[in-house]
């Protein structure tokens, strides 16, 4: 498993619940180290263990925690990178949704050894979309539902994602875009100083 995924989970626990809580998770999971390295690769079972330990230490349901992780990844001030990179997908939330078809390829261009499940977007009506998450990374659908909710806020759209998990980590996310002019979104500068 790519270290970025484990590191994201660690960042979420650390930034939202404190370093001490993360230390408890790390020892509960029997990691044997204090910090994941974003650019190293870890055995897949370590991710599951860390996730289970996070749920146990935080007394949270798995699905809730994964959804919160998704929201954190986009909206927390300490991680601006993902939010910015996702905003390159389009000038409006609907354009952004359509750009998710290319997300798999985009990620591969940026970090060749990070393989995320491909996403397929289908527009059902003006307001209804369906996002298919391919199998391979259990929990990714739940995380992505959180990401979509937070990206909606970012664009100023009211978005209701609902995730249904399938076998082998695949998932379907139903998305209602209720009002694309719900609120003023956050600004997005195409280029920022220092890259």
């Amino acid at each position: 498993m790519h270290g970025l995924i484990n590191r994201s989970l660690q960042g979420f626990v650390q930034d939202c619940y404190g370093l001490e809580t993360w230390s408890k998770v790390a020892s509960h999971a029997g990691l044997g180290f204090q910090s994941f390295e974003a650019m190293l690769t870890y055995p897949p079972e370590l991710t599951e263990k860390t996730l289970a330990s996070s749920c146990a230490v935080l007394h949270k349901q798995r699905d809730d925690l994964l959804g919160d992780l998704g929201i954190y990844l986009v909206s927390h001030q300490s991680v601006q990178a993902l939010r910015r990179l996702l905003r390159f997908g389009g000038a409006s939330f609907v354009e952004f949704l359509h750009s998710l078809d290319d997300l798999h390829e985009r990620v591969r261009l940026a970090i060749p050894d990070l393989s995320l499940p491909p996403l397929t977007v289908t527009q059902l009506s003006t307001e209804e979309f369906s996002l298919n998450v391919a199998e391979g990374l259990p929990g990714f659908g739940m995380v992505f539902a959180g990401i979509l909710r937070a990206m909606g806020d970012d664009y100023g759209a009211l978005v209701m994602p609902e995730c249904f998990e399938m076998e082998k980590g695949a998932a379907v996310i139903n998305i209602s875009v209720l009002d694309v002019s719900f609120a003023k979104g956050r600004d997005f500068d195409l280029a920022v100083a220092g890259g």
């Binding site: 990178a81 910015r84 990179l85 390159f88 985009r106 261009l109 940026a110 195409l190 920022v192 890259g195």
Partner: peptide, 12 residues
């Protein structure tokens, strides 16, 4: 896409 790549690669 170039701007996206520059930014993503800079982070990585």
């Amino acid at each position: 896409e170039m701007l996206y790549l520059i930014e993503a690669k800079t982070h990585a």
